[in-house]
């Protein structure tokens, strides 16, 4: 059924990166997330699936406190990253976001050159001592995002001039340039064509070597292809969480089964 059962069994023994307990999220009066408990492992791809409006993107944005930028949003419960509460008053959300990178639904390169797009994070965080180090960080990040060969001759061209798939990989390069520990991806392929999607998926699989990756997706095939763990959200509840192979072949909950077989959604 799956390609390499042995490696997956090994994966389940990874240490816990993110741990959420009793997370509730409110947008004003709207109760968007209702008591989610979940443990996300290191060096694993975890997929969040579920129908639109089920809260999977909202939960993803809780993990790097992006919801802080929305005035009416309120988060309760605890989320820990390496056993440290990220909603603690002493935690600087800005530094948290440097550790937890994010790739968005629509490619959003800055209106700057390709080089400056990737160098943006390292520059802000003072990661390079000189121009040479910065150059090597940029090259390494672009290589890791599998876009180096396509852009190495035009690093000074604007990032907005690339094609959609290239832009998304540029955004991934931009995110990995700050050396995050976790990479959050909010429907990274929804604006891409199948070929670009395949490239990004391949990339996600490679990123698993070094990072914990959390991906929100509407495509169940994609979740099955790239993830080792899958979480199914429905109406703000985390309905089921487990091995991807198990969720897609032998779900425990009726709702999960209905969603996967296309009866609700």
């Amino acid at each position: 059924m799956y390609d390499s059962p042995i490696s997956e069994r090994q994966l389940t023994q990874q240490e816990i990166k993110f741990s959420a307990r009793g997370v509730q999220v409110y947008y004003g009066d709207n109760h968007a997330i209702k008591g989610v408990d979940v443990d996300l492992e290191d060096k694993t791809v975890t997929a969040f699936i579920g129908p639109s409006g089920c809260g999977k993107s909202t939960f993803l944005r809780c993990l790097n406190r992006m919801n802080d930028t929305i005035d009416i949003c309120r988060v309760e419960g605890t989320i820990t990253l390496d056993d440290q509460d990220i909603y603690d008053k002493r935690v600087d959300p800005v530094q948290l976001r440097a550790r937890v990178g994010m790739v968005f639904q629509k490619p959003n390169p800055f209106p700057k050159s390709i080089y400056d797009n990737v160098a943006y994070g390292p520059r802000i965080h003072g990661m390079a001592r000189n121009r040479d180090e910065l150059d090597s960080i940029v090259e390494k990040s672009l290589r890791r995002a599998a876009i180096w060969d396509e852009v190495k001759d035009r690093l000074n061209a604007p990032g907005t001039g690339l094609s959609g798939g290239q832009q998304q990989r540029l955004c991934i390069a931009r995110a990995v340039a700050t050396e995050p520990e976790v990479l959050l991806m909010d429907e990274p392929c929804s604006a891409l064509d199948p070929i670009a999607t395949a490239q990004v998926e391949e990339l996600i699989d490679e990123l698993r070597q070094d990072y914990s990756v959390v991906i929100v997706t509407h495509s169940m095939q994609q979740a099955a292809r790239v993830s080792q763990k899958t979480a199914f959200f429905h109406l703000g509840h985390l309905v089921e969480f487990g091995e991807t192979s198990q969720i897609f072949t032998n779900p425990e909950d009726k709702r999960t089964e209905s969603y996967i077989t296309g009866r609700i959604g």
Binding site: T69, V94, R97, A98, R99
Partner: peptide
């Protein structure tokens, strides 16, 4: 200026003034 630009920057750990 699209909110996506700001989100992208915040997501990389930039402060508001940056």
């Amino acid at each position: 200026v699209p909110q996506a630009m700001r989100d992208g920057s915040y997501g990389l750990g930039a402060t508001q003034s940056e």
